[in-house]
Amino acid sequence: MKLRIVLYSLCLLILASCGSSKKAAQKKRDSGVVLVEPIPVKLPSVKEEKHVKKLAKKKLNKNVLKYIEDYAAIAVKEMHEHRIPASITLAQGILESGSGKGELASKSNNHFGIKCHTGWQGERVYHDDDEDQECFRKYQYVETSYDDHSEFLTKRKRYAFLFNYSSKDYKRWAKGLRKAGYATDRKYPDKLIGIIERYKLHEFDKVKKKDFKMKNSPEEIEKPTYTIGNYYEVKKGDTLYSIARKFNTTVAVLKEINGLKDNTISIGQHLLTK
């Protein structure tokens, strides 16, 4: 009888310990370093609408055409800032994100399949890839995903040799990305080249800097930064007003610190609360 009481007491202690560990883990997830993303700015036209109209006559994939129309200007901006061919950036975005319709792109705005890797301090999602439930970077805006893609290539030594190639030599860039280990698929270069040539994305590599006049110079454009703070994951039924009351703040403050244009929020979104 005494032995049963002792065993029962031990079980209660173990369960209590597990419960407290889970609470501690949850608390750790709810606060930490958060990526603060600048609100995207309107970019000059790169004649993307005219480009897409020509292609539409050939009855090509409508999702790809819409993707080109939406993101060609961003790819050109990245080309002039980082010397990565716009055609390569666009083709990778189309391929990696399923033209923006893939699960990873839809739930995290990650258009390039960039994993967390060591040192990533922003938000994250878990997605099956080469292995089950791998860690991927999560962004508030697609534009930040493009910027991070450029940073990813320019700041890693294994991609350094790519910048010896011309920004118009998309074929060498496509083969070089595979060689550097960006993707494990042996057909990755052929897939990129196929997309570029089918949708004539190399035309965007010809856009000259003088013809792409930004309202702000690259130095003046705000870059993503990290901040230490608390954030809250939006749940079903939440509104900005209910979240503001929960954290003793105001809707106006929440919108300002999270860069929100209106009161629209979505389930799973992470909001800074202070």
Rank of each mutant, 00 (worst) to 15 (best):
I5K: 09
K28I: 12
I84P: 00
D128F: 08
F163P: 06
E220G: 05
P38Y: 06
A25D: 12
L35F: 07
L240R: 02
K66N: 13
R198K: 14
G19H: 04
T184G: 03
K246I: 01
H51W: 07
Q92K: 08
V142R: 00
K23C: 08
S266T: 15
K58V: 04
S266E: 13
Y226S: 00
I257F: 07
I228Q: 08
Y232G: 03
L240E: 04
A160K: 07
K58Q: 09
D132T: 11
W173E: 05
K187S: 05
T118G: 01
L13V: 02
E151S: 13
R83H: 15
V52H: 02
S145N: 09
L15M: 12
L192F: 01
K261V: 14
G119E: 00
D128P: 06
M214Y: 04
F247K: 06
H117K: 13
Y139K: 10
R178L: 13
C11M: 11
A72P: 03
A25I: 15
W173I: 09
Q140E: 11
P44T: 06
K274Y: 05
C135W: 03
I193W: 00
E197Y: 04
H82T: 15
K223E: 13
G194Y: 02
S31G: 02
E69M: 10
E78M: 04
I14R: 08
C116Q: 05
F161H: 06
N63L: 14
R245Q: 13
N109R: 14
V46Y: 02
K42P: 11
L7P: 10
V125L: 02
K261N: 11
L65I: 11
D238G: 07
R198A: 13
T239K: 02
Q269D: 02
E69F: 14
G119R: 00
C11Y: 08
S217F: 10
E78C: 06
I243C: 01
Q92I: 03
I196W: 00
D262M: 12
R83S: 15
G122N: 07
K213I: 08
L43A: 01
A180D: 08
Y126L: 14
P218R: 04
L90C: 03
R4K: 15
F204I: 14
C11A: 11
N110C: 05
A105Q: 12
D148R: 01
V64W: 00
K23R: 10
V253G: 10
Q133S: 15
I221D: 03
A160C: 04
I74S: 00
Q26P: 01
M214T: 15
E103R: 03
Y139F: 12
K261S: 12
E220Q: 14
L104E: 05
T249N: 01
V142L: 02
S31D: 07
N61C: 10
L35A: 01
K77I: 14
Y146I: 12
K255C: 08
S21F: 15
S217P: 01
T250L: 06
K235Q: 03
E78L: 04
Y199A: 07
T118K: 10
K255G: 06
S166F: 05
G237F: 09
K107S: 08
G100P: 11
L95I: 04
G122D: 06
S21Y: 14
F163E: 10
V34I: 07
S17G: 13
L153Y: 04
I193C: 03
G100R: 00
E219S: 14
A174S: 09
V41E: 06
K28S: 09
E143L: 07
L272K: 13
T227L: 10
E134T: 15
I267G: 00
